[in-house]
Design a protein around this nucleic acid. Structure first.
Lengths: 203, 203
DNA sequence: GCCAACATACCGGGCGGTCGGTTGGTGACC
DNA sequence: GGTCACCAACCGACCGCCCGGTATGTTGGC
């Protein structure tokens, strides 16, 4: 009827709004429990816009992963390629990871909760990127083992997986309203990771 | 036609078969991606049996959790209440946890993947039990901190959550066909947890 | 005027859940 | 020790809803 029957979203914003809304909903409700209708409603667009930019709901999920992973991998790559001893670079990488998490808590939650649902052709690409990230991290650990900074009796893969697992799960218990900031928590977890909880190491 | 048109499942086995089939399917495909039809087909019963024993698909999921949690909590309770220094009991508790995981890898996978989907009235009960388990563990850590066995500069809640997170995530990367047994992995993770990865602790 | 960039109405399928019916073990009773 | 009523335990056809996805129309900037 009138020119502002409803406040329309300006052209060119639809894709970003869809990704933002989907990220928030996936993080809060989980991928499977979120419907495409909820997404377009939250983004204040229509299904036409969603399926104009994404070929399926799964591709929308995948694109959230890839964006996050690409950024994380690039950061880790830069730090790993820098100069200095391996343990220092590892410490720097972990600190940076927590900084990054501070800014991208939601997509990380999506990742942690729904990663295993990506299947088919999408899965291969995502898993490849994920392995690339994991290997960058693991290489740093191995380098630290070779130079004598880290203990050699536990495989680097076990060390890497153990640490990254505890990081990925932070969203399940950490509340930003709590006494700690995510950055402070990061420092404590790095310290735990490096030195453990025991005061006097067993001789 | 004949008396064995199809091999019927004997009476009284239906509930167990449903739980077993649901556990396997939930662990492999995820809760949301598993349909009630797949469950009853795998269990070789019908939907009548499923909804005779469970009021909903969600209650079936919840019952898997509660069974697992109840057993784990009972084990931890027994170990925590025993004699001996806190750090020894903690070590014992963790070793026992890995032994238990060895026997119940599937329901633990279900737990790790689909815990966040439990909502409504079911959620309260499950979360309460989960908190009870967590507190038992955390109390051991705090006791160790008071007796001087564990470092006091990191909150016991952070220590507990960090460690339990890495344990819960094991199913994502550990393959029982690999070089390590789950028991051996457990020992390595306990060692990492206690002493960290650094060879020479910072002065 | 033409093609992205959307909007809107619509669809087939499969999902969780239901409901009236059947079966078989169990115990009370003679 | 036969039989018979009874009620869990279980069967299976069925339902309505809502989901992901589509087909066609509309708009606006270059």
């Amino acid at each position: 009827m009138t020119e502002q029957d409803r406040p329309r979203v300006p052209r060119g914003q639809a894709r970003d709004r869809i990704v933002a809304a989907a990220t928030e909903l996936f993080a809060r409700l989980g991928y499977e429990a979120t419907t495409t209708r909820q997404i377009v409603e939250a983004a204040q667009v229509t299904k036409g816009a969603l399926y104009h930019w994404f070929s399926s709901k799964e591709e929308l999920l995948t694109s959230i992963y890839r964006e996050l992973l690409a950024e994380q991998t690039a950061r880790l790559e830069a730090i790993a390629a820098a100069d200095g001893p391996a343990d220092v670079r590892l410490h720097r990488a972990v600190s940076d990871l927590f900084t990054h998490m501070d800014e991208h808590a939601e997509p990380l939650t999506v990742w942690a909760r729904s990663m295993h649902l990506v299947a088919g052709e999408h899965a291969a690409a995502v898993r490849a990127e994920r392995r690339r990230y994991q290997h960058l991290f693991q290489d740093l650990v191995e380098e630290g083992q070779k130079t004598g900074a880290f203990r050699p009796d536990v495989p680097a893969s076990v060390i890497t997986n153990t640490f990254l697992s505890s990081v990925v799960q932070i969203h399940r218990w950490f509340r930003s309203q709590g006494p700690l900031t995510r950055r402070e928590l990061g420092e404590q977890m790095v310290s735990l990771f490096l030195d453990g909880v025991r005061v006097v190491p067993a001789g």
